[in-house]
């Protein structure tokens, strides 16, 4: 791929990640600029420090925003914003 094609591909993922960050900040009423959250940032425990109640809220929010039901998924899908992006948009498909 050319560098411009790679930039376009990266922009697609970054846009999905940005959408997820805005959703999380809005639904969980976090006092942080969505852009402050990095794509690789852990969501639970360390990192964004979300808890199991937040997960329930996120399940609902993700289904409403992206039409993807993650209720039966393993916790690994919340491993980072970018990992969540892979789940809500499988076309991105970069999970190792």
């Amino acid at each position: 791929m050319t560098v411009d094609e790679l930039r376009a591909k990266a922009a697609e993922r970054q846009q999905t990640c940005s959408q997820i960050k805005k959703m999380i900040v809005s639904r969980l009423d976090l006092e942080v600029d969505p852009d402050w959250i990095t794509d690789d940032q852990p969501l639970f425990g360390r990192g964004l420090e979300l808890d199991s109640l937040d997960v329930l809220e996120l399940y609902v929010a993700i289904e409403a925003e992206f039409g993807v039901a993650l209720y039966d998924s393993e916790m690994a899908v919340f491993g980072s914003i970018s990992r969540l992006a892979d789940e809500v948009d499988p076309r991105l498909g970069a999970t190792a």
Binding site: M1, V3, L6, R7, K9, A10, A11, R13, Q14, D39, S82, D86, L92, G93, A94
Partner: peptide, 9 residues
């Protein structure tokens, strides 16, 4: 603009 997963570098 290129710090994203899934790219071949």
């Amino acid at each position: 603009g290129l710090a994203a997963a899934g790219l071949e570098l």
